Amino acid sequence: MSTDVVDLILADHRRFEELFRGLRDRSADRTTLLGELSALLVAHAEAEESEVYPALKRYKKVDDDEVDHGAEEHAEGHQALLALLEVGDTASEEWEDKLEELVEALNHHVDEEERTILNDARSEVADDRRAELGRRFVEVRQERLDDDCGDIAYVRRLAKETADRID
């Protein structure tokens, strides 16, 4: 398994897509899939913001505005995730609507992040530095997962703490 932070982030992005496909399947165990998505999404965002984004902002050829915008989009994602988690009935139309809002927000973020921040990181940040960032990213992500960061109470607190980032 690669330790390159770009590869690790991209692998999480592909996992989000797999989980969304599962969540759209009405015959799937949506509760279990949502729990996995919630935990991974929160852990991923927090690891990016604590380890990756601050480091990338120090590189002149990585766009600081895009990095800041990525953090804003994480906050939007936390709001959309919380809205989905708060709908109790996974078979309801409201749940379907909230799922699509989360999918749309996350797909938008992933697309922008991959085209801007991650492309810049791959071309401008040395391999050994990307590997070090990858190790730190994995470490923080695992710490958050171990803290049950996908729990609704955790997501509720995070959404409240980051609400001021949203334009």
Rank of each mutant, 00 (worst) to 15 (best):
T90C: 09
D128Y: 11
A91H: 10
V155F: 03
N107V: 03
D29I: 04
L106F: 03
T162Y: 03
A80M: 03
L106A: 07
T31D: 12
F16A: 02
A71K: 12
S27F: 14
A47N: 05
A105R: 11
W95A: 05
T116Y: 02
E49G: 11
R24A: 04
R136L: 09
S50H: 04
K60I: 09
E161M: 14
V67T: 00
S27W: 09
A131N: 07
E96C: 06
K98E: 13
E104Y: 13
Y53R: 00
R30L: 02
I152P: 02
V138D: 13
D7E: 14
L81T: 01
E113C: 03
L158P: 01
D164C: 05
L145R: 05
A43M: 10
V103I: 15
A75P: 01
S50W: 08
A105P: 05
L41G: 07
E101C: 10
D7H: 01
E112C: 04
K57S: 00
D148E: 13
G22E: 06
I117F: 00
D65G: 08
R129A: 15
R157M: 12
L102W: 09
E113R: 01
A55D: 00
L81H: 05
R26M: 05
E48W: 05
D164P: 03
K160E: 14
H44I: 06
T31C: 11
A39R: 07
D29T: 07
E114D: 15
E100S: 09
E51A: 11
D146H: 01
R165P: 02
A105Y: 09
R130H: 03
E51D: 07
R156K: 11
H109E: 02
R157F: 05
V103S: 00
R136N: 11
A55F: 00
D167M: 03
F137D: 02
E104W: 07
G77R: 03
R135N: 12
A105E: 14
V103P: 03
D65I: 10
S27N: 14
N107C: 10
E49F: 05
N119M: 13
A126Q: 15
L145M: 12
D65H: 15
L85V: 04
E49V: 02
A71D: 06
E66G: 13
F20Q: 06
R141M: 13
L85G: 04
D120W: 14
L40A: 15
W95P: 01
F20M: 00
L56F: 09
R30P: 05
S2W: 02
L41C: 11
R21G: 12
R24D: 00
S92Q: 01
D7W: 04
S38T: 09
E72N: 04
A47I: 02
L33Y: 06
L85T: 02
A159S: 00
R58M: 12
D111S: 08
A163Q: 13
